[in-house]
């Protein structure tokens, strides 16, 4: 349908008068991200509480001026009305051509605060003042054609994998009478791990003769094997601190297990608990095991993660727990 095509065209490329006045090439910043290729998010404006109060006061002034046929009263009333309207335009203008890039975040546990850091970019030749992001982070000021680092904090209430679809930018600058808001699309995926709670002891070690590991990295047992240099990224738990104290370089004490005793955290071992409590308990075990540098595996109804002890392994387990869903 031609009309629909035209509609979507306008939606994607809003016409603005500046397009004709400003050098396009110059506007398209170095990111290669064309300013106009992305549809500008609509700016919504509403009166703040102060704005409503001033409206009421202007109305009272108007009534008084009418009653006393007071032309200077009218003049002041209309002067303030003009001021209010200009502050409306300013507030809207203050949010125009702002963009958000490089949204970064770290996974957290449910119940903690999730922090997003991002770059607030100003693609216009005028500075932007007193911009707030989401509830109350800010104020940020961004000079013309520059960017600043901003951060928002969100309470992670539930575990799972989520998408932060938009970040809301708002401003009441300059007079605090109008609040302009726009939602900038970021589509940032983030993960919230289950809350690590639970009081149960670790499950008993499982005996797996056939899987007895003999490799050099088979750590986590009781028998001392030897010492090797520490490599960055490795757990600090097995550093030979006594040796460090004697002035030696950082080194790791190697142990080898009985070879057959394995630690498995199993979903089905926790039959008596509710789903979320099970996940929380498993999370806690995983964290404890990771902290002690033990090798462990995780068995969930839908998948099993084999025995390992690398940091990546822990993350993988935690992610599995975060996104776990019971399919009925």
């Amino acid at each position: 349908m031609p009309s629909a095509t035209r509609g979507s065209f306008y939606k994607n490329r809003p016409w603005t008068p500046q397009k004709f006045f400003i050098n396009q090439k110059f506007l398209q910043g170095g990111t290669g991200g064309a300013v106009f290729s992305k549809s500008a998010p609509p700016v919504r404006t509403a009166l703040t509480g102060s704005g409503w109060v001033l409206t009421a006061i202007l109305f009272a002034m108007l009534l008084a001026s009418m009653n006393y046929s007071n032309n200077m009263g009218y003049a002041l009333c209309f002067l303030l009305t003009g001021l209010m309207l200009v502050s409306y335009l300013y507030a809207r203008y203050n949010l125009k051509r702002l963009d958000i890039a490089n949204v970064q975040t770290q996974p957290v546990f449910s119940g903690e605060s999730l922090r997003f850091t991002f770059e607030l970019q100003n693609n216009s030749s005028a500075g932007r003042t007193a911009i707030y992001a989401e509830d109350l982070s800010g104020p940020f000021s961004v000079g013309p054609y520059s960017c600043t680092t901003a951060e928002i904090t969100v309470l992670a209430a539930k575990r799972g994998r989520f998408t932060l679809a938009t970040i809301t930018l708002w401003t009441v600058y300059p007079l605090g009478l109008f609040r302009a808001r726009c939602h900038i699309r970021v589509n940032k995926v983030y993960i919230v791990y289950p809350k690590p709670i639970g009081t149960l002891q670790w499950p008993p070690l499982e005996n797996h003769e056939e899987e007895a590991s003999e490799g050099f990295y088979a750590r986590g047992g009781d028998d001392f094997v030897g010492v090797r240099p520490w490599r960055p990224g490795e757990s600090m738990h097995h550093i030979d601190w006594k040796a460090v104290a004697r002035g030696r370089p950082l080194s790791i004490k190697e142990f080898t297990g009985g070879g057959t005793e394995q630690l498995w955290f199993d979903w089905f071992q926790l039959g008596g608990l509710e789903i979320e409590s099970r996940l929380s308990q498993l999370t806690r075990w995983v964290l404890e095991a990771a902290q002690e540098g033990r090798e462990f595996g995780l068995r969930m109804p839908n998948r099993a993660i084999p025995i390992d002890s690398s940091p990546g392994h822990t993350t993988k387990c935690l992610e599995t727990l975060a996104v776990f869903q019971v399919v009925p």
Binding site: Y74, A75, F78, L79, T81, G82, L83, M84, L85, V86, S87, L89, Y90, P174, L175
Partner: peptide, 12 residues
């Protein structure tokens, strides 16, 4: 701000 609002003031 006031100057920009002046056309409004005069019109009203």
């Amino acid at each position: 701000l006031l100057l920009l609002g002046l056309p409004f003031t005069i019109m009203l």
